[in-house]
Amino acid sequence: MNPILRTFGLAALGALVFIAIGLVVPAWFLFTMTKAVGFGLVALGLVGLLRGGLLSFGQGLYYCGGAYVSGLMANWAGVTDMIVLLSVGCIAGGLIAALVSPLVARYRGIFFAMLTMALSMVAYGVLTKIAAIGGSDGFNVPKPTLLGYHLAETGFGLYAIAVVIAALAAAVCRVHFDSGLGLIASAARENELRIEYLGASVFSVSTRSFILAGGLAGLGGTLNGVALGHVDPFFSYWTTSGEMVFIAILGGYASVTAVFGTALVTELVRSFSGQYFPESWQMLLGIFLLLVIVFLPRGVGSMWAKPAKNHAIRSIKEPAT
């Protein structure tokens, strides 16, 4: 079978399974899963960047961009259809990333992380200043619809949309990661100079991953803005971006599905420890993070998405420089 068809087939199957699960779980869990998909989408974009050796600490900017643009559109133009909102949010995130990418695509490592973070913090600062859209308090987003139907009553409709989006995004990313371009990105992580000598442009590969990540972040931001019914500049704050990185690293870059799982688990750990140990939930979250890193250093996704054999050749560790 064509591997691309197979991937999309698996994704469709997975979506159906999770929609079925959505029919039986309690309402709060449905919501948590929806929100986890929103975060997972952003983390999936980060996974794409990580495969190319890039870590963005400022995905909050595109997450926030998607949420604001779609949220404002819903408020000002009265558009509440999820298909429109998600498309707009995705394009907004991707566009902002495309505008930013010439600036950041030549950076690497910690400097890339910090530059992206600085940009997202500038956006945060600017948004807190604009009183017309609520300043630091943000604004509420009206209830979503789909093709004229209201979605908010049970949360199931939104959840189903989230699952479909997640499956689609995961499948697209899987296909992209395994394509020639995707593999060049992975190779760039190992040795950029060599890739350049072989005739590929690391710059354009990085740019492409960055725009993809921006689009996914915009998608996630829209989904969460609508699900939460509220958008504020905190979406662009560095701790929000940090949470996404957290989820992406926990998921690891081997798998395109793991991030959704880790997003969910992170949410649950935070929520339950906050509920039962309201005065020490940060510590529990920290311990959880340490445990995952110690026992699954290559991410939760490494449990099922084993790298192919030939990867073993390059797993010889370079000395720390």
Partner: peptide, 24 residues
């Protein structure tokens, strides 16, 4: 009384509010 920390911003609070009502 069920006590919850308000830290984490509005998005976390919306979720925790739902958890309080629907789960707790």
């Amino acid at each position: 009384a069920v006590l919850i920390d308000e830290a984490g911003g509005a998005t976390v609070q919306v979720q925790e509010y739902r958890n309080l009502v629907q789960r707790e």
